[in-house]
Simulated assay, not measured.
Amino acid sequence: MAIGGNPVFNGKNFRTAARGNNSAAYGSTALAGQTAMNQQQLEHLYNQPSAGPADTGRMTFDDVIVKTVATIGMVLVGAAVPVFLFPSLAPLLMIVGLIGGFVLGLVNSFKREPVPALILGYGFLEGLFLGGITMFLEAMFPNIAMQALIGTLSVFAVTLLLFRSGKVRATPKAMKIFMVMIIGYALFSLVNLGLMIFGATDGMFGVRSEGIPGTQGMFGFENGIPFGIVIGLFAIGLAAFSLVIDFTMISEGVRNGAPRKYSWTAAFGLTVTLVWLYIEFLRLIAILRGSE
């Protein structure tokens, strides 16, 4: 029994040490019993189902779903704070959520390894911002929150179905076009924000609220089709393709056996995109209803 319980080496030890005495019978019996036990263990292991991704610490779709639900749950918890607990502090909480969510969003984006606490914290802070801005717009346009939520879930469902059917994919060429468009949209948003801050435009949403020249009276818009409608539809399209990118990265992660911890990275990406999509729907619906 000196070599780790291996029956072969135990037999050799037995033959060397037990020649010509009664211990030979004992050694043979022990060797036979151990061999039988090992055979039973091997048969038991052979009959077990093969180890799946969860057993080997790899990412699974279930992991991504669970962690995404947890992150979205934190968004809902954060939104409940200004809506139900401290409605009088909604403007302050909205600003805190906007700045804090932006900072944590950058931190999570540039960290090599996902940190669940930071991702959940991001969800909570984004919830503060969404709760505050939703309250503000809901007071002006009743039921806008429900309309924006339905729009967000609808785009998510349609995009997921198209992705699963193989009709849309994040190809390298499409990714390059997307990057150019997203950079252009980000620059426009920064310029529009600057115009709003310095009072260069009077619209609630800056340039987005202004009518497109030459479209007066079209589709019922007396002052022209709001520029924000075109930009809003464009942004929703970008967010939808961002979902395709998220789905593609998740599928590749599962197929390539990525470590389970990166399920949090996938959940963070989906949460960022869904928050962005909801905000774009809020803004688009507010512009449409404000032009009635």
Rank of each mutant, 00 (worst) to 15 (best):
L274V: 05
S154T: 15
V230Q: 10
Q216T: 13
L233Q: 02
F136R: 09
G131S: 11
F129V: 00
S154Q: 12
K12M: 15
T248H: 14
F129W: 02
K173Q: 14
I285D: 02
L98C: 07
I245M: 14
D63V: 07
T56G: 03
G100M: 00
I182Y: 00
R164G: 11
G151Q: 07
I133C: 05
G228Y: 12
G100V: 00
A200N: 13
P142I: 07
W264D: 07
G184P: 03
G194F: 07
A200F: 13
G166I: 13
T152L: 14
E138A: 12
D62F: 11
N108Q: 10
T248A: 08
V168I: 15
R283L: 03
V75G: 06
Q41P: 00
L238E: 11
V155I: 15
N192K: 14
Q147E: 13
T265G: 13
M94K: 12
G220W: 12
L89Y: 14
G11M: 10
L149N: 05
F136V: 12
V69G: 04
L85N: 10
G211N: 10
G78F: 03
E252D: 13
I65F: 14
A286D: 04
L85F: 13
P114E: 02
F281R: 09
G5A: 04
I287M: 06
I279V: 15
F136H: 09
M179P: 00
M204N: 06
V180R: 06
G100R: 04
M37R: 12
Q48P: 00
A18N: 15
E138G: 04
I72S: 01
I182S: 08
K261F: 02
M74W: 06
A174Q: 09
G269I: 05
K261T: 08
E292D: 09
G73Q: 05
A239F: 03
G184V: 04
A235L: 13
T71G: 05
V244E: 07
P116Y: 09
Y122F: 13
I177D: 05
P114R: 01
L277R: 09
P116C: 07
G121Y: 01
A25L: 14
E113G: 04
S263E: 06
Q39W: 08
T201C: 05
M218F: 12
F84N: 06
S165A: 15
F221R: 06
F227Q: 14
V155W: 09
G100N: 01
L243W: 01
L190K: 00
I119R: 04
A286K: 01
G194R: 06
T60S: 13
A80W: 08
G101L: 01
E210K: 15
S50Q: 13
R112W: 03
G123L: 10
P259E: 11
L120G: 00
G220E: 08
T265K: 11
E292G: 15
N22A: 15
N192V: 04
L89G: 05
Y122R: 00
T29W: 09
L282I: 11
F14Q: 15
V83G: 03
N256V: 06
P7A: 03
A170G: 01
G57M: 06
G269N: 12
T152D: 07
V254I: 10
V69N: 02
I144N: 01
V77E: 04
G127C: 09
G4Q: 12
G78Y: 08
L243Y: 05
A174D: 07
A200P: 00
E222L: 14
S28R: 11
K176R: 10
K67Y: 04
G131I: 07
D63E: 03
P53T: 03
S23C: 05
